[in-house]
Amino acid sequence: HHGSGALAALHADGPHAGLPVTRSDARVLIFNDWEERKRSEPWLRLDMSDKAIFRRYPHLR
Rank of each mutant, 00 (worst) to 15 (best):
A17W: 06
F54Q: 05
L44C: 06
P58F: 00
D33M: 06
H11K: 03
D25Y: 06
H11M: 03
G14W: 04
P20I: 15
M48N: 03
G14K: 03
A8D: 04
R27K: 09
L7R: 13
I53W: 01
F31M: 07
L19K: 05
R39I: 12
A52R: 03
I53G: 05
H2F: 15
H11N: 06
A17R: 11
W34M: 01
R45V: 14
A52M: 06
R23M: 15
H59R: 00
R37Y: 15
L19R: 15
L44G: 03
H1G: 11
I53T: 01
R27F: 03
Y57V: 00
E36L: 12
S40K: 13
L60D: 00
I53D: 01
E36S: 11
D50R: 05
S4P: 11
R61N: 08
I30Y: 02
L44E: 07
L29H: 03
R55D: 14
R55C: 09
N32S: 08
R55M: 13
H11E: 05
L46Q: 01
H59A: 01
V21P: 02
D50N: 09
L46V: 07
D47V: 03
L46P: 03
K51A: 13
R55F: 15
R39N: 10
W43T: 10
L60C: 00
F54I: 11
A17V: 10
A12R: 11
E41A: 05
P15W: 05
V21F: 03
L46K: 01
Y57K: 00
A9C: 15
Y57W: 14
R39W: 10
W34E: 01
G14E: 03
E35T: 13
A9K: 14
S24K: 13
W43A: 12
Y57P: 13
W43R: 09
A8Y: 08
P58E: 02
I30P: 01
A6Y: 12
A8P: 12
D50Q: 05
S40G: 08
L7H: 11
W43K: 10
D47E: 04
R55P: 02
E35I: 15
L10R: 06
D13S: 12
G14V: 15
A26K: 00
E36R: 11
L10I: 09
W43P: 03
D50A: 06
N32G: 06
R37E: 02
R55N: 13
V21S: 09
R27W: 04
G14F: 03
H2W: 12
R45N: 08
A6C: 15
L46R: 00
Y57R: 00
H59C: 00
E41G: 02
E41K: 07
D25S: 11
R55I: 12
G3K: 13
S24F: 12
I30W: 01
N32K: 12
L29K: 03
P15M: 06
I53F: 01
A12Y: 07
K51G: 08
R27C: 12
P20W: 00
H11R: 04
D33G: 04
L10P: 10
R56A: 15
D13F: 08
N32W: 13
A12V: 12
A9W: 08
L44V: 07
L46S: 01
K38Y: 15
F31V: 04
G3R: 12
E35N: 13
R23V: 14
A8M: 05
L7D: 10
S4T: 14
D33K: 04
L29I: 09
G3I: 13
F54H: 09
A12G: 07
L19H: 03
K51W: 09
L10Q: 13
W43V: 05
D47N: 13
G3T: 12
P42E: 04
N32H: 11
Y57M: 00
I30R: 15
S40F: 10
L60S: 00
R45E: 14
A12N: 08
P20M: 01
M48Q: 05
S40W: 08
S40T: 13
R39Y: 09
